Simulated assay, not measured.
Amino acid sequence: METFADFLQSLDDETQKQKLGDLFNFIDSEFPNIDKRIAWNQPMYTDHDTFIIGFSVAKNHISVAPEKAGLRQFEREIKENNYELLKEIFKIKKSQPINKELIRDMIAFNIEDKKNCKTFWRK
């Protein structure tokens, strides 16, 4: 798997395929200068070779991983959307809408917060 299109094609669930496709298009239009890559079989966005946000798919949910700092910064908004907040990720159930503005705000936060970061992950 080399591209986001490959990743989407690998999904069996049409609902998740559509939701993620729409989300990726939204992110691409909001942040045309960040990079996309597939790593660990998951789509992720990076900026100057540092991790910004990643996604994975399970049968009944989409997992969103903005690193702990991104989760803690938006903990209230994650809970207000009734998403399941875990230690390193939050889950959006298949039946829930994706709050694209929340994802946009997380990406913007990580880009700014990691602008001087020289490593892939925060230390």
Rank of each mutant, 00 (worst) to 15 (best):
N81H: 05
N82F: 15
N82E: 15
N82C: 14
N82W: 14
Y83N: 10
Y83A: 12
E84Q: 09
E84G: 05
E84K: 10
E84C: 05
L85W: 00
L85M: 05
L85T: 10
L85N: 07
L85V: 12
L86D: 04
L86V: 02
L86Q: 02
L86N: 03
L86C: 01
L86W: 02
K87R: 02
K87E: 01
E88G: 00
E88T: 04
I89W: 00
I89K: 05
I89H: 06
I89D: 05
I89N: 08
F90I: 03
F90E: 02
F90W: 00
K91S: 03
K91Y: 03
K91R: 10
K91M: 03
I92Y: 00
I92K: 01
I92F: 00
I92S: 04
I92W: 01
K93C: 03
K93R: 10
K93F: 11
K93Q: 11
K94W: 12
K94T: 15
S95E: 13
S95R: 13
S95W: 06
S95V: 13
Q96A: 13
Q96H: 14
Q96S: 14
Q96R: 12
Q96T: 12
P97C: 03
I98V: 05
I98N: 02
I98Y: 07
I98F: 03
I98G: 04
I98S: 03
N99R: 01
K100E: 14
K100Q: 13
K100M: 14
E101S: 10
E101T: 14
E101F: 02
E101H: 00
E101Q: 10
E101I: 12
E101R: 01
L102F: 05
L102W: 01
L102Q: 13
L102D: 15
I103D: 00
I103Q: 09
R104W: 12
R104E: 15
R104Y: 14
D105Q: 15
D105I: 11
M106K: 08
M106Q: 10
M106D: 10
M106E: 11
M106Y: 04
I107H: 07
I107L: 06
A108V: 09
A108L: 10
A108Y: 08
A108R: 12
A108C: 07
N110E: 07
N110V: 05
N110Y: 01
N110A: 07
I111T: 08
I111G: 06
I111F: 08
I111D: 09
E112I: 13
D113T: 08
D113W: 06
